[in-house]
Write a protein that binds this DNA or RNA. Structure first.
Lengths: 150, 150
DNA sequence: GTAATTGCAAAGGATTTGCTCTGGT
DNA sequence: ACCAGAGCAAATCCTTTGCAATTAC
């Protein structure tokens, strides 16, 4: 009995493998968010054949460990990127170009906890997403018509 | 050939139908976000049998028309709610029994706008969801739900 | 040696599309 | 009548799971 949360066959982070190292390298090399598939492709491009399943498994493990950030994009994909800070933070995303900025708000965290406590809620967690049009996109006169087909 | 954007068989908003009215009614009745399936089930509960496909089609059309807001939740579902043109409130939801409390936070609204402005973002909107375990549920059978991040 | 890990094949779940029938105007 | 709209069935897309083979330690 080691970890009651672990299911057989699913990845954890106990042993160092070629695949884990390769994925970590790609995550390090890319500053922004990437979908699991993009990471998978990038690994191939680097000559590191890592199974898509493994990419997903590792990504999930990393998210649980808080080492990677996961965000759902409008088209249904989950995009990942290495966390810049281990702290809890939120994202400010541009609805046109997708540029994302990590922001922190102690006030918000506090407010959320306070509200929850006030109503007798415990084990609270929250999600806050801010979407807007970034300066460049707003200036470029580009309409927010990035909404094309999926 | 009237609307070049429209594909055959897909819903628009030209004719009034029983289904559209039913969906609109449910959206009106529920202040918060609901998944397509929840709306579908709610319609059934009301004795209004509307196909799930139709719910999806209408929801999509409404989102495109800007009458409904769509947000992706962490578990992969898209949740919808009628757009409110005024100050919106947030929801504090119990992860066990689903009890929901409406809360308002002028500070948060302000903070979000401030953050966005600070980074040069305009036309900002945000979504905030707080999830926890309410008093009753915490007192009763507790679960080791480890939902984090957000 | 042995449990952790990989990754193919297949399953799953949400959402969309093909297509045909229904119904609003 | 005529075409927007409804909705079943099947297809898609992203992600997870079953499980046998592989590999780190």
């Amino acid at each position: 009995m080691s970890d009651p949360e672990r299911r057989p066959g699913r990845a954890a982070t106990e042993r160092s493998t070629r695949q884990k190292r390769a994925l970590a390298a790609v995550l390090d090399a890319t500053g922004g968010f990437r979908s699991a598939n993009e990471l998978f492709l990038e690994l191939r491009a680097r000559g590191q054949n890592v199974g898509l399943t493994t990419v997903y498994n590792q990504l999930r493990a990393l998210v649980e460990l808080g080492e990677v950030d996961a965000v759902r994009s409008d088209d249904g994909e989950t995009r990942y990127r290495r966390c810049e800070t281990g702290l809890h933070h939120h994202h400010l995303t541009c609805r046109v170009c997708g540029r994302t900025v990590e922001i922190q708000g102690p006030e918000v965290e506090h407010w959320a906890d306070e509200m929850a406590a006030e109503h007798g809620y415990v084990e609270v967690s929250h999600t806050l997403e801010i979407v807007g049009t970034c300066g460049s996109c707003a200036a470029g006169g580009r309409r927010g018509a990035s909404r094309s087909a999926g």
